[in-house]
Design a protein around this nucleic acid. Structure first.
Length: 196
DNA sequence: GGATCGATCGGCT
DNA sequence: GCCGATCGATCCG
């Protein structure tokens, strides 16, 4: 299956978020494929979105969100965790989709080792967990996912029907009423790897 | 230069 | 369910 290209990410952020569900996130780690099916995402859209890192404008930390689509935006938080986003929309407008959970598919032994032997259901069922399992840290911030030799990319898989997808408010965010209410979390219904 | 705090996780009650 | 870990970016002075 082919890598998803720039055109996929250079679209409306909510459409990208919805359609990322069911696709395969692949990390090439020391020549081995580590991968999982995307089962949970959240959209963060623009400076008006009070839950978005770009709510106070452009800074050194969030600069990648303002760059071209199809790049990874990886940030460090709580002194120990990394989270992976994919930049969406047009260059210059800050928007991204946070990858919150995967269902592991390939390289599970490596993931178990990286996650300290935790239960399989805890390998990638959270934004920081999946970064640890796949070996993703801030060195990936700004990396292009749409080049042929990328060590991190999204592989096209089958589309999920709407009946398999649930939406709801985003997890763990602060902000105004609109930000707290926006149903910009998308996840695969009844999938055991969805966080929480 | 110093204080604050976060798109989380895991351990403990 | 609650709380501490842990650190760099950001903001204020």
């Amino acid at each position: 299956m082919a890598h998803l290209g720039r055109d996929f990410f250079a679209r409306d952020t909510l459409a990208v978020a919805r359609e990322l569900l069911g696709q395969r996130l692949v990390r090439i780690w020391e020549g081995e494929r580590l991968s999982g099916c995307v089962v949970e995402v959240e959209a963060y859209i623009g400076e008006e979105d009070q839950a978005c890192h770009a709510r106070c404008g452009r800074t050194k930390r969030n600069a990648t969100m303002y760059g071209p689509p199809g790049h990874a935006y990886v940030y460090f938080v709580y002194g120990m965790h990394h989270c992976l986003n994919v930049v969406t929309g047009r260059k210059g407008f800050p928007a991204a989709v946070l990858i919150r959970a995967l269902e592991p598919l390939e390289g599970i032994e490596v993931m178990r080792a990286r996650r300290g032997g935790r239960a399989d259901v805890e390998l990638t069922s959270g934004p920081a967990r999946l970064c640890q399992a796949l070996g993703i840290d801030r060195r990936f911030d700004g990396v292009d996912l749409c080049v042929p030799d990328a060590s991190l990319f999204v592989e096209k898989s089958g589309a999920l029907p709407d009946v398999a997808v649930t939406t709801g408010p985003r997890v763990g965010v602060r902000g105004d009423e609109a930000a707290l209410a926006a149903p910009w979390r998308f996840y695969v219904q009844d999938n055991g790897y969805v966080s929480r």
